[in-house]
């Protein structure tokens, strides 16, 4: 029985590993995913902006939380998505994994940028300043640099195969280092923690605030999947343009 399961997984793996299969299958999913993610994001935004109760301490400025938190979470998960795809590509030599990895980099960088930006806009009414050298912000900034490194490396090579492998290695090295970087930044922050600025911890979030937040988180997850698929499909076209099925698309 185990062997048949293994065989099934292997078969699925190889089918999924084919760019053509990926392109055709995701093509069917895209409209649904687009509708679901836009629907959830619009619903969550209206709910969060208009109907969630005001925060006792921060007033209305806290409403940025509904975009800031999901984006920050995805920015971090995105790096692991990228590195996991890179690992799969290196170990099993699956073409499509490379393309997913390369597509996850600019998406992750954009989300990290947004996380920093919304955070700093939120910081102004909350702490009176756009930028604080807080542990979480600093870690986010370093994450942004890590993404930029992968993007820059990807663009530097003329040979696509080399670029893929190089990016996979770099993102794996980055993944191993991320926990260490985060811990060290955390520790650094406790050393220098200024007494005047106190971040609002995740003390207690009102359930009426939590519900729209969950809707937004789900919406952003779908959006992430959607854009990752779109980017990967573009990458497939750019790399597989010689193959007959891609030529067939334009006829």
């Amino acid at each position: 029985m185990w062997q048949s399961i293994l065989k099934f997984i292997q078969k699925w793996f190889h089918r999924f590993g084919s760019p053509r299969w990926f392109y055709q299958t995701t093509g069917k999913w895209l409209p649904y995913l687009a509708v679901i993610s836009v629907g959830l994001l619009v619903l969550g935004s209206i709910w969060g902006l208009g109907f969630a109760p005001q925060d006792a301490r921060q007033g209305n400025s806290y409403r940025i939380i509904f975009i800031h938190v999901p984006i920050s979470v995805l920015a971090m998960i995105g790096y692991y998505v990228m590195a996991a795809a890179g690992a799969v590509a290196l170990i099993w030599k699956i073409k499509i994994a490379n393309m997913v990895m390369v597509s996850a980099a600019p998406l992750g960088a954009a989300l990290t940028f947004l996380a920093l930006l919304t955070g700093s806009i939120w910081g102004k009414p909350t702490w009176g300043t756009y930028w604080v050298w807080d542990a979480r912000i600093t870690s986010m900034l370093i994450l942004f640099f890590l993404y930029l490194g992968v993007i820059a490396l990807n663009q530097a090579f003329t040979s696509r195969d080399t670029a893929y492998k190089a990016c996979a290695i770099l993102s794996l090295v980055g993944t191993v280092n991320i926990p260490i970087i985060y811990k060290s930044v955390d520790w650094w922050y406790t050393l220098h923690q200024p007494a005047t600025i106190k971040l609002t911890g995740a003390s207690s979030i009102h359930p009426d605030m939590l519900k729209p937040l969950i809707v937004m988180i789900l919406g952003f997850y779908c959006f992430y999947a959607l854009v990752l698929m779109l980017n990967t499909r573009t990458e497939i076209l750019a790399r597989e343009w010689r193959s007959s099925w891609v030529r067939g698309l334009s006829q």
């Binding site: 640099f145 930029l148 770099l170 090295v173 060290s184």
Partner: peptide, 18 residues
């Protein structure tokens, strides 16, 4: 590769510096 190298490597140097 010079500038690219610094860009790629420097984020990994942060813990050491800290």
């Amino acid at each position: 590769g010079g500038v690219l190298l610094s860009l790629v490597v420097m984020p990994l140097y942060f813990p050491v510096l800290i």
